[in-house]
């Protein structure tokens, strides 16, 4: 197990290196951020001076080498626009994004698995059909449109929930958390529902397919023949066996929810790191863009690792490669 984890981490270092190079070259190719940031009245001398002060007049490989050297010391550079270390900027905004992602994953799991089970157990009833039709909508409606509709209906017309923003936060172990208060929950409800819709539909379909497949298996028939109640058959035999694909998907989707909550964060003005990325791309704030993508890559690597380890916990037949002598 340890050797497996060590090898994985080594591979991930290489992935991080390639990623940083790609992003660096990509942002460099777009152009000089000073052209956008500089005050219009600035003259040529000032533009040149500022470009030189930020090291942007150097050839690409020199800039990358400088970046690499400080990156190895753990310094990913300061944001051009905020004058704050890029990593600090991202980590400051990370709790908000994780909170939003966690809330939406909870919604997706709590609603998705039972609804999927129901649809799987009664595929031909009107309940099953309605759930499946709903999941198609969840897949196909664009996030930004649903977000705006949620705001229009629940905030503007009904006035039940706030339109945008995050609720008041309290610090728990140094992390600002907003969902501990009623006001915070009111704020997180719409954005997390918006973000959850797609995952919810995915989970419904996955659970339904798994359930239908499991129901036809011999062990289920045997369990029923033994006279076990339907309730026990479903909760013990079916559910346990369909969990593996669901855990995989939930794990990976959690990563993608964090990484790509951008649209939802923008619509609901949620002060998370997705919004930060968009703002940074708009002004070519390279240190932040590079640091953000590196963190996301790292996060995916860790999540994949955790999912792999979880497999072996859920299903003793699965062994992580390298775990056996």
């Amino acid at each position: 197990m340890l050797a497996f984890i060590a090898r994985r981490l080594l591979q991930s270092l290489f992935a991080l290196f390639v990623m940083s190079l790609l992003v660096f070259v990509g942002v460099y190719a777009i152009g000089n951020p000073i052209d956008i940031l500089i005050n219009p009245q600035a003259d040529q001398a000032e533009i040149a001076a500022v470009t030189a002060a930020l090291g942007l007049d150097q050839p690409l490989w020199v800039q990358y080498w400088t970046f690499l050297q400080s990156a190895l010391r753990g310094d990913l550079g300061k944001s051009f626009v905020a004058n704050v270390p890029a990593i600090q900027l991202i980590l400051n905004r990370m709790p908000a994004t994780i909170e939003l992602a966690a809330a939406s994953m909870v919604i997706a799991v709590v609603l998705g698995i039972p609804l999927g089970l129901l649809a799987g157990l009664r595929p031909d009833s009107w309940v099953g059909r309605t759930i499946m039709a709903g999941s198609i909508l969840g897949f196909s409606l664009p996030t930004f449109w649903v977000g705006l509709m949620l705001i229009m209906v629940f905030s503007v017309h009904l006035g039940w929930l706030p339109t945008t923003g995050r609720g008041p936060t309290v610090d728990v172990l140094g992390f600002p958390i907003s969902i501990l208060s009623w006001e915070g929950i009111r704020h997180v409800l719409l954005p997390s529902t918006n973000l959850a819709l797609f995952k919810l539909s995915l989970l419904i379909r996955l659970t339904r397919a798994g359930t239908r497949e499991a129901l036809a298996q011999d062990y289920v028939r045997f369990a029923r023949a033994k006279g076990l109640s339907m309730r026990r058959v479903v909760s013990v035999h079916v559910l346990k066996n369909i969990m593996i694909p669901i855990v995989t998907v939930v794990g990976l989707e959690f990563g993608s929810v964090i990484a790509f909550a951008i649209v939802t964060e923008t619509i609901f003005a949620w002060p998370g790191m997705g919004k930060l990325l968009i703002d940074s791309i708009n002004v070519l704030d390279r240190p932040v863009i590079v640091a953000y993508l590196l963190i996301i890559v790292l996060m995916f690597i860790v999540i994949n690792l955790v999912v792999d380890v979880l497999y072996s916990v859920l299903d003793p037949r699965v062994r992580v490669a390298g775990a056996r002598p």
């Binding site: 951020p33 009245q41 600035a42 000032e46 004058n83």
Partner: peptide
């Protein structure tokens, strides 16, 4: 005197 500033103000005082 601000280090790392993408600037904009220098031309006003230059």
């Amino acid at each position: 005197t601000i280090k790392g500033s993408p600037g904009g103000f220098a031309s006003f005082v230059r």
